[in-house]
């Protein structure tokens, strides 16, 4: 308890801080055994980090300095708890960039290299086999994944079939963003729909609101072996998500904001995936939109996805 008292003495605090601390005390006392409170108190360093992490603000309201501090804390916590050295970034969107994606239905042959690369790059839970990307094997005659087979397990490509990849479409008018009761998910200025994993309360209303099955939930604590972990992480991207929160495709924000391609685009052996800056008239994505016949899924819902399908 001395730890508590000392901290309380350190600095006077306002109503907001008081309420927060009050909430923390209530939360701690109600879950003392569950979170291993005694263990926390013994390890003062870890306790301090966790304490500050618990009371931090929504990412969008943080000052650049606060963003740096939380990233540092998360790096240290990863060291203490998981014994891994991660490098986490909080890089902001680049001005004049709006990301868009196009998928070539003629080229894709269903190898699922993109899925494997995505799971690895984004540190997706290996236990429940979380996948952001789904590939549907489609018979000719339809363009909706509902008519396809999303669980195929055989040699590809199969004759007279085509393959359709589905992931988060980063809608301009995203129903998930509107649904979230805490503003824990939003559209960044570069068009990426992100989740603040530490602000999400896990109500899953966004999941019900998404017409594309674009969002995933951490039903348990995600498991990623240390030797398989991608250590270059982003706060809004591929860091290890806490239990009970939403996650989703971020167009590999940790790569794309650093000028690289998303892992799925890079991994695709047939060149079916096109990614780029919609505001750059010379980009490949703009070329596709100008010269190919493109369509989007469920356009009747007015979600305005930034993900187009096209055929050669």
């Amino acid at each position: 308890m001395d730890v508590f008292k000392n901290r309380l003495k350190e600095k006077p605090f306002g109503r907001r801080a008081f309420l927060k601390r009050f909430a923390m005390a209530a939360a701690l006392s109600s879950s003392a055994s569950a979170t291993g409170c005694i263990g926390l108190l013994q390890n003062d360093d870890r306790f301090q980090l966790k304490w500050k992490e618990y009371f931090k603000n929504n990412y969008r309201l943080m000052t650049p300095q606060e963003k740096e501090e939380t990233v540092e804390r998360l790096e240290r916590l990863a060291q203490i708890e998981k014994h891994v050295d991660i490098q986490m970034s909080s890089k902001s969107p680049v001005d004049g960039v709006l990301f868009g994606y196009a998928f070539n239905l003629t080229r894709c042959e269903g190898f699922m290299e993109c899925v494997t690369a995505c799971v690895k790059e984004n540190n997706l839970d290996r236990q429940t086999h979380t996948q952001y990307i789904r590939i549907f094997e489609m018979e000719p005659g339809g363009m909706s994944p509902e008519t396809g087979d999303g669980k195929y397990f055989h040699e590809v490509p199969v004759d007279h079939h085509f393959y359709m990849g589905v992931q988060c479409f980063h809608c301009e008018n995203a129903p998930c963003v509107r649904a979230c009761p805490t503003k824990a998910t939003w559209k960044e200025p570069d068009g990426i729909v992100v989740v603040d994993y530490d602000w999400c309360i896990g109500c899953r209303y966004c999941m019900a609101a998404c017409p594309y099955y674009g969002r995933r939930f951490n039903w348990g604590a995600p498991k990623v072996p240390n030797n398989e972990m991608t250590q270059k992480q982003h706060y809004l991207g591929n860091r290890i998500r806490p239990k009970g929160t939403m996650e989703k495709c971020t167009f590999c924000v940790q790569r794309t904001r650093a000028g690289r391609l998303p892992a799925c685009v890079e991994a695709c052996p047939t060149g079916a995936r096109v990614f780029g800056n919609l505001l750059d008239p010379d980009s490949e994505i703009r070329f596709v939109l100008k010269h190919k016949k493109v369509f989007r899924l469920k356009e009747d819902l007015a979600t305005d996805p930034k993900f187009w399908y096209f055929v050669d």
Binding site: A27, T182, K183, W199, C200, C203, Y205, G244, T245
Partner: peptide, 25 residues
């Protein structure tokens, strides 16, 4: 039903953010 019940205070206006009037929840 909450995945993260300890963070339920994020809903309380003032200390958290309530996405009103946008979210029906």
């Amino acid at each position: 039903d909450l995945g993260n019940p300890l963070k339920a205070w994020h809903l309380v206006p003032g200390i958290g953010i309530l996405n009103w009037p946008s979210s029906l929840l």
